[in-house]
């Protein structure tokens, strides 16, 4: 929706306000205003990225007295041809994609369901909303601590205890983070707990901006609640849902803190939850292999860029974005 806004507004601006920069005597004002932020971005985002590209052509170890050695594309060829590295990197990418494939639809739908749930004027609604928003202010470092205790293996763990209670003891304790089959799922639930209300708030705002007349028209047609929801609500907030899906996708690929913190506690098969981001940090800082980590960074950035472009293009093609 963003690009469209630009296109609508930008050409309009000169008409409204013809450029008279020469007359006002503030010819440099524009670049001057922008320069502090641009300088910051250049130094702290662009320069390190360029440096990552450069480092990826070297064999260089963190904290090592050994001088960096130029190795050309070795780090890249290893990443794709060394069976171990390729498998690990592939697994990490797969985990990221799995996470995104589950989290994006689930979290978007959940956000919609929650928004519908709280979008009603009932007594005490403020309290319920407050409960739902609360996790949003929890830093991940703290969230990970709490959920590590909740997922604790054995009967001591809160989740196991709860399940045991509701099943009357038929569900026995499970190693949520340790079992490769549930580790990623456990992290997904935790992530949803922490952040779904962000998406919910966005959807809620959209719900409340759907014109009331549309509902009135629909109810005159004797449309059922469900039919109203499908035919009026969903189309009305379609763009917002797409936006939510977009940002959730980006978040999914940045997945780091919770995995990093949780997979280093207890007995966890790290491969089952490793994401590209945790792998980069692990390679660079735990194994001190800066060159390899830099190559991973570069590949990863290419992938994210491609995904972002495809998504934007797809969203625009369907035409709804304004």
């Amino acid at each position: 929706m963003t690009t469209q806004t630009q296109q609508l507004q930008a050409p309009a601006a000169p008409v409204r306000r013809p450029p008279k920069s020469g007359l006002t005597g503030h010819r440099f004002a524009g670049p001057l205003f922008a320069s502090p932020a641009l300088l910051g971005l250049a130094i702290f985002l662009v320069a390190p990225f360029v440096l990552a590209v450069v480092l990826s052509f070297y064999r260089v170890q963190l904290n090592s007295p050994r001088p960096a050695r130029f190795v050309g594309f070795e780090q890249y060829t290893r990443l794709f041809t060394d069976p171990d590295l390729a498998a690990a990197f592939g697994q990490a990418l797969l985990n990221n994609f799995t996470f995104a494939l589950i989290v994006v639809p689930v979290q978007t739908l959940l956000a919609l369901a929650l928004a519908v749930l709280v979008n009603r004027q009932l007594r005490g609604m403020v309290v319920f909303r407050t409960f739902i928003f609360m996790p949003l202010v929890f830093p991940l470092a703290l969230t990970a601590v709490i959920w590590r205790l909740i997922y604790s293996r054995g009967d001591q763990g809160l989740l196991n205890a709860l399940l045991g209670l509701f099943s009357g003891g038929t569900i026995t304790s499970h190693d949520w983070l340790g079992d490769p089959a549930t580790a990623l799922g456990a992290i997904i639930v935790m992530s949803i707990w922490q952040s779904v209300s962000f998406q919910m708030i966005i959807v809620l705002a959209a719900l409340q901006s759907v014109p009331a007349e549309l509902y009135e028209a629909a109810s005159l047609d004797r449309a059922s609640k469900w039919a109203q929801f499908i035919n009026v609500t969903v189309p009305g907030i379609r763009n917002t849902l797409i936006f939510v899906a977009l940002i959730t996708t980006i978040f999914s690929f940045r997945l780091f803190d919770q995995v990093y913190l949780l997979s280093r506690s207890g007995s966890v098969d790290r491969n089952s939850t490793e994401t590209v981001m945790t792998q980069i940090i692990n390679t660079g800082f735990d194994n001190n292999n800066v060159g390899q980590a830099a190559a991973m960074t570069v590949i990863f950035m290419l992938i994210i860029t491609v995904i972002a472009i495809i998504q934007r293009a797809a969203a625009r093609q369907r035409g709804g974005i304004q």
């Binding site: 702290f44 985002l45 390190p48 990225f49 440096l51 990552a52 480092l55 980006i250 690929f253 940045r254 780091f256 981001m277 980069i280 940090i281 660079g284 800082f285 800066v290 980590a293 830099a294 960074t297 990863f300 950035m301 994210i304 860029t305 972002a308």
Partner: peptide, 11 residues
């Protein structure tokens, strides 16, 4: 779209 984590190491 560049996540901070991606540039943490060179930074």
């Amino acid at each position: 779209i560049i996540p901070f984590e991606a540039v943490a190491l060179p930074l």
